[in-house]
Design a protein around this nucleic acid. Structure first.
Lengths: 216, 216
DNA sequence: CTCACTCGTGGCTTTCACTGACATTAAGTG
DNA sequence: CACTTAATGTCAGTGAAAGCCACGAGTGAG
């Protein structure tokens, strides 16, 4: 089965499962219900997900997908603040409605994770993946091996901060707070990462062609 | 049932479960086996633990119990380096054999968590608890509410760093590395926390009676 | 002491998440 | 069209977890 098609199906299942989890809770949602909602047999659900809770993983991962994509494309000659702000502006222009809907669903799952232990494990596992990927990005940026202890410490601290910000902003938005209040989310993430890594991650690692603007 | 008695029983179950997990793997260990090893009925096991994997949680938590106790007793007028080093020395003098055995078991579980996803979730959940408690400690120290965003960011970054150090040192010890190599573990933890919080957590928050020694 | 009451536990039973083995279908290829 | 292959469906398990009821040990009141 094509990787792409497989992932799309997993995402489709995850959307329905997340919706049901949100509407009636995790415990009250059975594998049969998920299967029926997607229009597949129950057996097929278990072929694509090893557990009921993990059905939420693809949607939950999408909650940090933008951050990860942005980090992966972080040019060596830009500060984190510069890059994140620019990408955030670009995102607001090119926002894909499907991605926005998935994001809202992801926020709900992360919020649910506050009270539903099985979902919290899914969220923490997703953040664990983020941490591993971030270790790779930081390692490349600092020109160190990916399993270097210092790199792992930076990755853990930075991804921990990223997780807290995601939980905080998501919860606030679900509580009906004004989204404009988080227009500076990119700067907040950047400064949190910079602080969590003691300044080791955040600066340009290569001289830009032109002089960089000051960062205060 | 008395809190204390209940916790002791949970710990007893956890010891046996962890031993079986280590000896024969998580999948190969059944709830019945755990029950038989402790001398309780299977039904009672499920009354005390919501899942098979979570049977490892109390032992896993003990892997960070010393750090948490030490943090809880961190006097306002000492730096983290000073306090941790002093406590580490004290621990080496007063080491309780039972605690040492539990610690070894905990290290094995954390190592197992590398390859067994269900145990990894248990480890991450334990670290999540550590983070929450650390948030309380940091909040008190900085005289801020426990749900303050900055406090949560510090707690996440600090507990993430603590987790990585635990994984790193535990794995090294299990691989037979010389324990003397980690004699400076306390300083490493302290400096990692200090760095992960941008220096916000680590300094004394109250003038000591006498002048504090320098910290380099 | 003893009756009543609570609480932790054991055994039996059920539910349901999840798996293995095999049948079936759909799509591609000659 | 027959043949292959991959994806899904069907059905009968397995085992983790929960419901239910009963037992026995403690405890306090009378």
């Amino acid at each position: 089965m094509k990787e792409q098609r497989r992932d799309r199906l997993r995402l489709e299942i995850s959307r329905e499962a997340s919706r049901l989890f949100w509407e009636q809770g995790v415990d009250a949602t059975s594998g049969d219900q998920i299967a029926e909602a997607v229009g597949l047999s129950t057996r097929t659900i278990w072929r694509h997900f090893r557990s009921k809770e993990s059905c939420a993983e693809p949607i939950v991962s999408r909650g940090v997908a933008w951050e990860m994509r942005t980090l992966r494309g972080w040019p060596a000659d830009l500060s984190l603040e510069e890059h994140f702000s620019a990408e955030a502006i670009r995102f607001h222009r090119e926002a894909d409605p499907v991605e926005i809907a998935d994001n809202a669903l992801a926020m709900r799952m992360i919020r649910l994770a506050d009270t539903e232990p099985p979902l919290r494990t899914a969220w923490l596992m997703a953040c664990d993946q983020v941490e591993r990927e971030m270790a790779g990005i930081i390692a490349k940026r600092l020109d160190l091996p990916a399993d270097d202890l210092q790199v792992r410490l930076h990755a853990a601290a930075a991804s921990g901060a990223l997780r807290v910000l995601n939980e905080h902003i998501g919860a606030a938005l679900l509580d009906g707070e004004d989204p404009a209040q988080f227009a500076d989310a990119a700067e907040r993430v950047a400064s949190a990462v910079r602080r969590a890594t003691g300044g080791a991650v955040g600066d340009p690692v290569k001289d830009p062609i032109a002089t960089a603007p000051d960062r205060g």
